[in-house]
Simulated assay, not measured.
Amino acid sequence: MRVHTRHTPSFGVARISLAAGEAVEADPATLVASSFGVTPTRSGRGRSASVFTAPAEGGWLDLAPAEPGDVHPLEFDGKIGWSVVRDSVLARPATVRRDHPWPALQALFGGDAGFLEHFSGTGLLLLASRGPVDSFTLRAGEVITVVPRFLLAYPDTVQVRLRAVDPSGPQSVRTGEGLVLDFAGPATLLVQARGRD
């Protein structure tokens, strides 16, 4: 699987090139166009996911997020996993798996589903961002605070703590309302320049 992005960072479209028989999972509502012979089948993960498989000669498909913003390929090397904001994955190959449940996220959210999901494996995970993707590179011991609605993804190598902005105010681990995340380096975090609603 190879990915080429265009019209970024405001109206990103991703061209995914597939070798013969190669497949990628994506929401069929994000499909703009594909080469002839690329076939979708239901993935078994509900109505919002299909597996697109290339024919013997290979093929391509163009995907665009439902909302304006960037598309960002995230490389997985098989060693380090990433926690990603729920509903921000545009496409993934079978070699990148969604880990559910993931112990570190269960500990972070107290057993609730939370607004993050964990991925690991090898290959490219294609993310959809609200606005351009930005990053923070943290040195060892450097700590920053990020508002959940702007977070996109972070690697397993970073230390993270979830806390309430105001302990007496409303909070939700499902949406991140009333909460912030403290991150300690070394690591690189990905954020989106426009917050989720």
Rank of each mutant, 00 (worst) to 15 (best):
residue 48 S to N: 13
residue 70 D to V: 10
residue 49 A to W: 09
residue 46 G to N: 12
residue 54 A to F: 00
residue 37 G to M: 12
residue 42 R to E: 14
residue 34 S to N: 08
residue 63 L to D: 02
residue 38 V to F: 03
residue 49 A to K: 08
residue 45 R to P: 01
residue 46 G to H: 13
residue 62 D to M: 07
residue 71 V to N: 04
residue 53 T to L: 02
residue 59 G to V: 01
residue 49 A to Y: 04
residue 67 E to A: 14
residue 44 G to F: 11
residue 40 P to T: 13
residue 63 L to I: 08
residue 50 S to Q: 10
residue 35 S to H: 09
residue 57 E to T: 08
residue 53 T to I: 05
residue 51 V to D: 01
residue 61 L to Q: 00
residue 71 V to D: 02
residue 48 S to H: 10
residue 68 P to F: 09
residue 58 G to D: 01
residue 50 S to A: 14
residue 37 G to V: 14
residue 42 R to H: 15
residue 63 L to V: 07
residue 37 G to F: 12
residue 37 G to C: 12
residue 61 L to N: 00
residue 71 V to K: 03
residue 66 A to F: 06
residue 35 S to P: 07
residue 50 S to H: 13
residue 50 S to V: 07
residue 67 E to T: 14
residue 55 P to E: 05
residue 37 G to E: 09
residue 49 A to S: 15
residue 44 G to N: 14
residue 50 S to E: 06
residue 54 A to C: 03
residue 62 D to Q: 06
residue 51 V to P: 00
residue 62 D to A: 09
residue 62 D to R: 06
residue 41 T to F: 14
residue 66 A to E: 07
residue 52 F to K: 01
residue 34 S to G: 10
residue 55 P to A: 07
residue 55 P to H: 06
residue 55 P to S: 08
residue 49 A to E: 07
residue 70 D to M: 09
residue 39 T to H: 15
residue 35 S to T: 14
residue 36 F to C: 04
residue 35 S to R: 11
residue 48 S to A: 11
residue 42 R to T: 15
residue 38 V to D: 02
